[in-house]
Design a protein around this nucleic acid. Structure first.
Lengths: 200, 200, 200, 200
DNA sequence: TATGAATGAGAATTCATTCAT
DNA sequence: GATGAATGAATTCTCATTCAT
C-alpha cells in the first residue's frame, strides 16, 4: 500500500502524476517501451498501477507524456545561443555530470520507440529541434549553401551523442561505461569540432 | 522457401535453423528483444514456431545464437589489418551500401539487450573486440602510454557509429535517415580521424 | 441540475438520492446490471460516484432500491379495479405513449438480474404481484377451479408484454421498434383477450 | 488441466471449437454478454481460456460466432412450410420439450446484446428472418395489403415467445417457470391464433 | 455533504513454451 | 523433423469501492 512518510495515503494528484512520469522515464529509457511494464513503473513510483490509466489513459499515453516532458525540458535547457565551444562540455556534463542519471534518460528516451504513431511524431520532432539547435550553434542558417549537408552533420553529431549515452548506460563496456565527465570532454570536443566546424 | 519436388518443405535441420537465425536477427535488430515475438520470427522464416524451442531451447537461446553469429561474422569481416583510412569508408558501406540491410542488423543487435546475463556477456565481448580492432587499426598497442584514454576513444567511435545506425533505422529523421553512402562517408571520415587520430 | 445562488450544488440528500435512482434505473434497464457502471450512472445523475456507496452502500444496494421503487410505482399505478378491457390500452400507453421512456424502464428492469439473491426476491415479488393483478382484472379468484392454469396465462401475458418492451427497446427491428401507441393497441387487445378471456 | 477421459490432452480443434461455442451460448444466454466471463466459458467447456482468442479472436468474436450458429440452426429447423397450426406446438416443444435447454438458449441469445455493431446486425437479421417465416406460415405475402401491420403482428408474436422464454429461464416465477410442454401449448395456441390469424 | 485521489480485485488478451501426433 | 493444439504465466486495463479532506 502506498504511504507517505506519515503512513497516510498520498492525496496529491499533481505529485503522483510526476512520480509516475519520473519512474516511467527511467524505466522506458532503461528497458525500452515494450520491456518496461506498467506494474514496474507504478512500483518504482510507489503508486497504484490503476493510476497510470487514470492519469495517462494508457501505457501509450504515459510514454507520450514522458516524451513531451523531455521535449519541454530540452527546449528550455538547450539554449539557442549556446556557443559551439560549450556544446561538448555541456554534453559531457549531461552524460557524466552530477545529475547524469536524470539527464541521460532524456537522451535515451529519444531512441525508444513504442510503435505508436503519435509518440513517434513527438520523438522525431524533438530530435529535429535538437539537431537544429546544434546547427544554429555552429553558425549555420537554414538558407545557407550546403544547408542539407550541414544538417546531416548536426544529426550525426546528435546520433553519436545518443549512441554514446546508450552504450554507456546499457553495457558494461569499460572504460567507456565508467568514464567521468572530464575524461569524456576531450574526445567529445574533438568529435564535435570535426563534425560541426570542419572548415576551421 | 526451399521446397522439394513434392512441394513440401525440405526436412533440413541446418537450413531451417539458418532461416530462423536470419529472421530473428532482423526482428531483434528492428524491434528489440522484448517486442520481437517468436511467432513473428517463425512466420518471417516460414517455419513452425515450435522449432525455435527445438533448435534453440528458448527465445533467449535464439537471441544468444544471433549474437554469437554476429560475433563470428564481425570476427571474419573486420580485418585486423584494415588501415585507419579505410574504416570510415568501410562503415559508410555498412550503413548505406548495397547490403546495408543485413549489415545494419549486425550493429543494431549490439544495442539490443535481453536482460539475460549470458547474452549480455556475449554482447559486451563482441563490442570489446570490435573496439580493440579499431584501436589496433589506429596503431595503438595495449601497452602504450595512454592506452586507456585511447581505448575510450575507440569505444566512443564505435558507440557513435552504432548510434548513427540506430537513428537511421528507427527514426524518420531527414536527411540522416535517407543519406546515401557517399553523403555519409565525408563526415564519418572527419569524425573518425578526430577521434582515432587526434594527434596527426 | 439544482444549484443554489452560490452556483454550487445544493446539499440535498433526498434530491441527490433521487437523481441517482433515476439515472440508475435508466442505465440498468437499458444496459443490464453488469454492463451498467456506477461511473456512468453517477455521471448521468451529475453526481459524485462515491455518493452511490454513501447512499446505497453498493451497486447491489442501488439496484435493489431501483427495483423497490418500481415495485412501489406499479403498486400505486396499476389499479386493482382496472377492468380487463382497459389493460391492453394501458399497456400500449406504457409502451409507446408520451411518457413511454420512463414507463418502459419499469418493465425492462423486471428482466434485469444482478445475481444477488435479495434483489432477485424483490424482482420475483413484483412480477408475481403484477401478474396477480392481471388475473384479478380478468375476474379470477385465488380459489377458483383452474386457478393455476389461469395464473399461468396471466404470467404469460406479462412475459409477452415485457418481451415486446425489450425487443422494442434493444433492437432495431422494424416495424416493431417504431410502432406507435395506436398501432400496438389492436394486436395487444387481440393477444390479451385470447390469453385472459379465452372462454368468452 | 484439460484432459479427456483417457487423461490425455484433447487434440481436436473442431471439437474444442464446438465445446467453446456450446458453453458460450449457454453462458451468454443465461448471464448476458457482459456478465458472462471468458474464464467461466472456458471452464464450462473444459478448455484453456487462451483458446477462445485463438479460435475466435476475442470475446466479441465468440459472441458473433454463437449468433451466427443460432442463425444457421434456426434457418435449418424452422421450416418455411410449417403450417400455422403447428407453430404453437413447435414453440412449446422449444420452450419445454426434451431438448429445451439447448433450444431455449437459441431464443435467449436473440435478446442478448454486446454493443458490438456487427453482432447487432447479425442478431437483427435473425429476428427479422424468424418473424418473416411466421408471417409466411400465416399465409401472408410481402406485397399484401396491410403487409406492414401483419409484419408487426408477427414480430410481436416472436417478442412474446422470447419474453416467455426469458422469464421462464431467469425467474423463479411459478407456475410459469416449471410449466411443462403441454401446459404451455394451450395458451400459446390461443395467443398465436389471436395474433397471426385474427380474421378467422 | 461532497469530492476526487487511491486501492485491489478481476477482466480480457498476449505470448513463450510444451506436448501429442 | 515438423506440425499445430493446448497450456499457464504475465500484461494491460477496468471497475466498484474506500479514504482523506
Amino acid at each position: 500500500m502506498t504511504t507517505n512518510t506519515a503512513g497516510t495515503r498520498r492525496r496529491d494528484a499533481a505529485g503522483t502524476r510526476q512520480l509516475l512520469l519520473d519512474a516511467a522515464r527511467r524505466r522506458f529509457a532503461a528497458d525500452g517501451y515494450t520491456a518496461a511494464t506498467v506494474r514496474d513503473i507504478a512500483t518504482d513510483a510507489g503508486v497504484n498501477v490503476a493510476l497510470i490509466n487514470r492519469y495517462f489513459t494508457s501505457k501509450e499515453g504515459l510514454f507520450e507524456a514522458c516524451l513531451a516532458e523531455v521535449g519541454d525540458e530540452l527546449g528550455r535547457t538547450v539554449d539557442d545561443q549556446l556557443p559551439l565551444e560549450r556544446i561538448p562540455h555541456d554534453l559531457a556534463v549531461r552524460l557524466a555530470g552530477p545529475h547524469a542519471a536524470r539527464h541521460r534518460t532524456q537522451l535515451l528516451l529519444l531512441l525508444r520507440s513504442s510503435g505508436d504513431e503519435k509518440a513517434e511524431r513527438i520523438r522525431v520532432d524533438i530530435l529535429r529541434r535538437f539537431a537544429d539547435r546544434m546547427a544554429t550553434a555552429a553558425g549555420w542558417q537554414p538558407g545557407d549553401a550546403d544547408a542539407d549537408r550541414r544538417m546531416l552533420r548536426a544529426q550525426m553529431t546528435l546520433a553519436s551523442a545518443i549512441g554514446i549515452a546508450l552504450l554507456r548506460a546499457s553495457t558494461a563496456l569499460e572504460p567507456l561505461a565508467s568514464a567521468d565527465q572530464d575524461e569524456l570532454a576531450e574526445p567529445l570536443r574533438d568529435m564535435f569540432s570535426a563534425l560541426l566546424a570542419p572548415d576551421r
